[in-house]
C-alpha cells in the first residue's frame, strides 16, 4: 500500500505544469474558438428561425392582400360590365326614341305635304274646270254669257260637283 500512497512532488509539479500548459493552449486556441462558434451557430439558428417565422407571416400577409386585391378587381370588373350594360341599353333606347321621333316627324311632314299638294291640285282642277266649262258653254251657246251669269253658273256647277 505504501507504494500507492507515496508522496511524489515530481508528479504533482509536472501535473500542474502540464495542466496549465494544456489549459493555456487549448483554452485560447481550441475551446474558446469552438465555443464562440457554438454560440454564433446557436444565435444564427435562432435568428434564422425568427426570420423564417417573419417571412411566413409576411407571405401570409401578402397572400391575403393579393386575395383581397383579386376580389376587389373582380368586383370592379363586374361593376364596369354592369355599368356598360346600362349605358348601352340607355343608348339603344335613346337611338330608338330619336329614330322614332324623326320618323314620326317625317310622316307628319309628308302627310302635310300630301295634303297641300292635294289642295293645290284640287284648286287647279277647279280652275281648269271653270275654264273648260266656260269654253264649253261658249261653244254650246255660241256666245259669251255675261260675266254675272258666268259666275253664277260656275258656282252652281261647282256646288253640284262638290256635292257629287
Amino acid at each position: 500500500m505504501e507504494n500507492l500512497m507515496r508522496f511524489d512532488t515530481g508528479l504533482m509539479f509536472w501535473t500542474w505544469v502540464t495542466f496549465l500548459v494544456v489549459l493555456v493552449i487549448l483554452g485560447t486556441k481550441a475551446w474558446k474558438p469552438m465555443m464562440n462558434a457554438l454560440e454564433k451557430r446557436e444565435a444564427f439558428i435562432k435568428d434564422s428561425l425568427a426570420q423564417a417565422n417573419e417571412a411566413r407571416l409576411e407571405a401570409e400577409r401578402v397572400a391575403k392582400a393579393y386575395d383581397e386585391m383579386v376580389a376587389k378587381a373582380r368586383r370592379e370588373a363586374q361593376e364596369i360590365v354592369a355599368a356598360g350594360k346600362t349605358t348601352a341599353e340607355k343608348l339603344k333606347a335613346d337611338i330608338l326614341d330619336e329614330a322614332k321621333a324623326k320618323a314620326d316627324a317625317l310622316l307628319v311632314q309628308a302627310g302635310r305635304q300630301i295634303d297641300s299638294e292635294r289642295d293645290k291640285a284640287i284648286a287647279e282642277i277647279r280652275n281648269q274646270i271653270v275654264d273648260l266649262s266656260l269654253f264649253a258653254a261658249a261653244k254650246v251657246i255660241g256666245k259669251a254669257v255675261s260675266k254675272e251669269d258666268n259666275e253664277r253658273l260656275i258656282n252652281e256647277t261647282l256646288q253640284e260637283i262638290g256635292q257629287s
Binding site: T9, L11, M12, T15
Partner: peptide, 8 residues
C-alpha cells in the same frame, strides 16, 4: 495516482 489527482 493520488499525487496527480491531488494536483488536479
Amino acid at each position: 495516482n493520488i499525487n496527480l489527482t491531488a494536483a488536479l
